[in-house]
Nucleic acid binder design. Sequence first.
DNA 1: TTCGTTTGAGACAATTCTGTTTCAAACGAT
DNA 2: ATCGTTTGAAACAGAATTGTCTCAAACGAA
Lengths: 185, 185
Amino acid sequence: MAVSRDQIIALAIRHLNGDPTASMAQIAEATGVSRATLHRYFTGREELLVVLGSRALDGWERVQRQAAIEEAAASADPERITTALHELLAGLVDDVQEHGFALTEHVMTKLPGLQERADELEGREIAFYLAAQRAGVLRSDLPVRWISNTVYGLLVAVRESLRRGDVARRDIERTLLDTFLRGTA
Amino acid sequence: MAVSRDQIIALAIRHLNGDPTASMAQIAEATGVSRATLHRYFTGREELLVVLGSRALDGWERVQRQAAIEEAAASADPERITTALHELLAGLVDDVQEHGFALTEHVMTKLPGLQERADELEGREIAFYLAAQRAGVLRSDLPVRWISNTVYGLLVAVRESLRRGDVARRDIERTLLDTFLRGTA
DNA sequence: TTCGTTTGAGACAATTCTGTTTCAAACGAT
DNA sequence: ATCGTTTGAAACAGAATTGTCTCAAACGAA
């Protein structure tokens, strides 16, 4: 095989990051494979998008796991929670580079199974933010879901800043953390 | 006329806020007008989108003008700049409710003339943030374009929070300002 | 009421995209 | 070199969308 299924997936994700509405023909061209072969690997466009969306959710889940947010939340230890928060945001920055297309594309949320899993991952993150509030790491006077949405919105800002070259890659993690925690004033 | 052109525009914007990829037939149905009439008012889909995008930019420009950000920047007065910043963000919150579809739809930025105008409005806002940094209202150790992107990202968070009912409408302006200026820690 | 205008419904062609199929060429392991 | 597999190119039908056109009905002002 000239191009493996995993390669196709990776290249398709990269292409969709630049053009989220690309057709099957455009995806085929971008992945260096014919349209027929693309349909041999994936039943149809919907399955392809579900697979790509699942990869994005895999990345998100991996970030949560590597940051050990559940364990940190259970410990209720401010230091551990702080460390986990830093790792979480740093991991999300990495992930937004890889799967940025899934961030604002409303199409993804309508595919079967994806929304449920996204809700579950969001739920875990909200539980973590709640623990961070209780531990005094995050402000308790803000709705925890607003905090979660803030992270999401700031990741959109990260994606745009990197795409336009407004912030250097090596500075973006610190800048994000700093803005998230301390604000801009 | 049963439905005026302005009414069509308003209803189309409202509908596209919920379904940004709606077809001409769907827009026609949502605006209470036949597809033929829709094509009598607008040359084609592209012109319709340009008109809607222009309305969104009109709203943005009006917010900037009402907040008097240029005058505040020229004054270099921290208090005036602070007031203008509050008014700017409050106005943007209002506007994101009206023209939220234009916030993340990449389609809009590809239409002729729209991107240039958006860049111009963004440029004015960046000049204002720069003045705010010089006046000590905003931190100077953050790239001014990052600050601009942060506002954009937080508006995405505002749109999501309101759509999902995570934050009450009457609280959102204060919550946004507070998070933007002081952060979440 | 009458007459000019506007509208809606439908038909129509053109385009685009999806998904399937066929077949010859390229490939790869033995 | 040979044989079974994989691939690409092309053709095809079906669906959806866009944009145009026609014509009868509804509308509105004089």
